[in-house]
């Protein structure tokens, strides 16, 4: 199945992203958890702090469904 991945605030440089893209489609096996995608992309696990799936906060155990948008952030703040 296919999902959309978005990488922000420096994570794209730390991942197996196609040509350093910050947003791209990704084929993953059915039943994949967020944690599996982090491994698949070789993202630095300890640096991934916030994950959003279709605009809502999720954790590494969440099972992603076909067509969903998954966004990864390191620890950031501002205001």
């Amino acid at each position: 199945m296919k999902i959309t991945v978005a990488l922000y605030a420096g994570l794209k440089a730390r991942a197996l992203a196609p040509q350093g893209a910050s947003e791209f489609d990704l084929d993953i096996p059915e039943g994949s958890k967020i944690g599996d995608i982090i491994k698949l992309l070789d993202l630095p696990d300890d640096e991934v702090a916030n994950i959003f799936v279709d605009r809502s906060i999720k954790d590494r155990e969440f099972i992603v469904k076909d067509g969903q948008r998954v966004a990864f952030f390191p620890l950031i703040a501002g205001g």
Binding site: A6, Y8, A9, F52, A71, F73, I76
Partner: peptide
């Protein structure tokens, strides 16, 4: 740096 996370 907040623009994208608030959007997501």
């Amino acid at each position: 740096v907040l623009v994208n996370i608030l959007n997501e």
